[in-house]
C-alpha cells in the first residue's frame, strides 16, 4: 500500500515538473516533438533511478559515518556527472540501438536539475505516505525516484502532444515560442493541481 501511495504521489500529486519545478530547461527544450520527448523521458528515467541508488548508498555509507554531509552537493554532482558519462560509454558498447535512441540526450542530463534534485530530496526530506513522518529507506527511495521520473515522462509526453498542435496554430508574434509554451504549461499545471492533497 505504501509503495502504491508513493507512486501516485510522485506521478500526479507532486509531479516533478508541474508542482516541484524541476527539470524545466530540458522540458521546454526538447518537447517540440513527441518522438524526442519520449526519448528524453526514457533517458531521464534511467539516469534518475540509477543516480538515486548510487548517491543514496554514498550518502549512507560514506558521508554520514564520516560526518561529511556538507560535501553532499559536490559529491552528488560529481557522481552524477561520472555516472552519465559511464552510462554513455556502456550503452555505446552494449546496445548501439538504444544508444542511438538515447545517446544525444545523455550529455544534457548532467545539468538536468531533476536528477540532482531527486538525489538530494530523498536523503534530506522527511516523507509521510500514510505513515508517521520518516526518512525514506533504500527501497522507498528507489520507488520514489522511479515514479518521479515516470511523472516527468508523463508531463513531457502530454506537453509534446500539445506543442505539436500549437505549432500549427496562428499565434501572435510576441507569444511565439517559449511564452505560449509557458502559458500552456500553466494551464496544464492547473489541471494537475486538482490532485493536490490526494496523497499525503
Amino acid at each position: 500500500m505504501e509503495y502504491f501511495l508513493i507512486i501516485i504521489s510522485a506521478i500526479f500529486v507532486n509531479n516533478i515538473v508541474l508542482a516541484q519545478f524541476l527539470g524545466i530547461c530540458p522540458y521546454l527544450g526538447v518537447s517540440n516533438k513527441l518522438s524526442t520527448a519520449s526519448g528524453m523521458s526514457m533517458a531521464v528515467c534511467f539516469v534518475i533511478t540509477l543516480a538515486t541508488l548510487v548517491t543514496y548508498l554514498i550518502n549512507q555509507y560514506l558521508l554520514v559515518p564520516f560526518q561529511l554531509e556538507f560535501l553532499q552537493t559536490i559529491a552528488f554532482i560529481l557522481v552524477i556527472a561520472a555516472l552519465v558519462q559511464m552510462v554513455e560509454i556502456v550503452l555505446k558498447k552494449v546496445s548501439p540501438s538504444l544508444y542511438q535512441a538515447l545517446g544525444i540526450f545523455l550529455p544534457l542530463i548532467t545539468t538536468n536539475c531533476a536528477v540532482l534534485g531527486v538525489a538530494i530530496t530523498v536523503v534530506t526530506k522527511e516523507f509521510t505516505f500514510g505513515l508517521p513522518s520518516h526518512m525514506l529507506n533504500l527501497g522507498e527511495a528507489l520507488v520514489y525516484a522511479f515514479a518521479t521520473s515516470l511523472g516527468y515522462g508523463l508531463a513531457m509526453v502530454i506537453f509534446a502532444g500539445i506543442r505539436e498542435h500549437l505549432a500549427l496554430s496562428d499565434v501572435p508574434k510576441a507569444f511565439k515560442g517559449v511564452p505560449i509554451a509557458l502559458v500552456s504549461v500553466g494551464i496544464l499545471a492547473m489541471a494537475f493541481m486538482g490532485f493536490s492533497g490526494m496523497v499525503k
Partner: peptide, 11 residues
C-alpha cells in the same frame, strides 16, 4: 508534536 497535514508533515 508532528502529524500529517494536507501537504505533508506538520510539526
Amino acid at each position: 508534536s508532528s502529524v500529517v497535514g494536507f501537504g505533508g508533515p506538520l510539526s
